[in-house]
């Protein structure tokens, strides 16, 4: 009941613009504190102790009662202090395959003291707890199981603490617009992609690739190091980049049309499997989806680009 009340109060008070620009510092006014069930129970116990002290005229009983009552009040400050001025930044949120566990990471920094047992949670889910060190940033990793491919948005997060005695719940909300790309779960039964019916015959159009050495050209920032002409550089020439070219015949197009499955999700699963397998075989490949076409290529970034396109298929373009 208290949790619900807290939630609605907070929902009403906290109407910040999302997503917020990191880092978010938990300033005084964005931290809320309310007693917990334990806190109310403690207050009840203090009341009982007070009645006993009055009735039995126990002076030292008064001391005990007032000490505990004051401790309750001070606990509010301590709990609040455990959150105040905490600095939050978004952490890395790596893509996962559907069915795996995604991790939303938040980096916490404390400018002054250590903070203990700071929890981060999504509404209604199990929180992740961390102790935040005074010197180094601490990463809180919130594990969320995934079911469907697509963009999994984290939504608003609650950062809270009940340290040191659990009588108060201090919390704040923040929203960095964290999201995790969830790739379609690959369909292992899909086998290998069908070899291309070479539409262009033998007279393939040369396309940039890395099969055959074609020419040397001037270095442009962004060229991969292994294509730099080190020998030329050693000879004293300028920084040159070796350019290769592949022929269209050697490239493989992974096509939506080839992936035969009764529903689009099945097709995506097959395509995901093909992407991974082709990448593993070291072959160059392109991806063709309705409305999306990724030119052939190879390597980890290319693979991820393809998988991301599969993940986000039908959800609009990636940001």
């Amino acid at each position: 009941m208290f949790a619900n009340l807290r939630q609605s109060i907070a929902d009403w008070i906290f109407r910040a613009k999302v997503p917020e620009t990191p880092p978010v510092t938990l300033a005084q006014r964005r931290i809320f504190v309310l007693p917990t069930k334990q806190g109310y129970f403690f207050a009840l116990v203090v009341l009982v102790l007070l009645l006993a002290s009055v009735n039995y005229a126990l002076s030292i009983g008064f001391v005990l009662t007032f000490l505990l009552a004051s401790m309750g009040a001070v606990a509010l400050l301590h709990t609040w202090r455990n959150l105040a001025h905490l600095k939050l930044r978004p952490g890395r949120c790596d893509p996962v395959f559907a069915g795996d566990t995604a991790s939303f990471r938040v980096v916490l920094e404390s400018p002054s003291r250590e903070r203990y047992a700071v929890g981060i949670r999504r509404r209604g889910e199990i929180p992740a707890f961390v102790d935040v060190h005074a010197t180094e940033p601490t990463v809180a990793s919130l594990a969320v199981p995934t079911q469907r491919r697509g963009r999994l948005r984290c939504g608003r997060l609650e950062v809270f603490t009940r340290y040191p005695v659990g009588f108060f719940h201090a919390w704040s909300y923040f929203d960095f617009g964290l999201s995790v790309i969830v790739y379609p779960r690959p369909d292992p039964t899909a086998g290998l992609p069908p070899q291309q019916s070479t539409s262009g015959g033998d007279e393939g159009i040369p396309v940039p690739g890395d099969e055959d050495f074609a020419l040397l050209r001037g270095y442009r920032p962004g060229d991969p190091p292994r294509q730099i002409a080190w020998k030329a550089l050693a000879r004293g020439d300028d920084l040159l980049t070796k350019e290769f070219q592949s022929t269209a015949s050697a490239e493989l197009w992974l096509d939506w049309i080839d992936a035969r499955a009764p529903d689009p999700e099945g097709r995506l699963a097959i395509l995901a499997h093909w992407v991974i397998e082709t990448e593993r075989l070291g072959q160059s490949y392109g991806l063709r989806l309705p409305g999306v076409s990724i030119a052939p290529g190879r390597g980890e970034p290319h693979r991820n680009r393809c998988l991301e396109a599969l993940a986000l298929h039908g959800e609009g373009t990636a940001p």
Partner: peptide, 18 residues
């Protein structure tokens, strides 16, 4: 330590109440 600090910080208020 935290328990001690908590009680120590509570002493001024306790005195007022007392």
């Amino acid at each position: 330590m935290p328990a001690g600090m908590l009680l120590l910080h509570a002493v001024p208020l306790m005195l007022v109440f007392f």
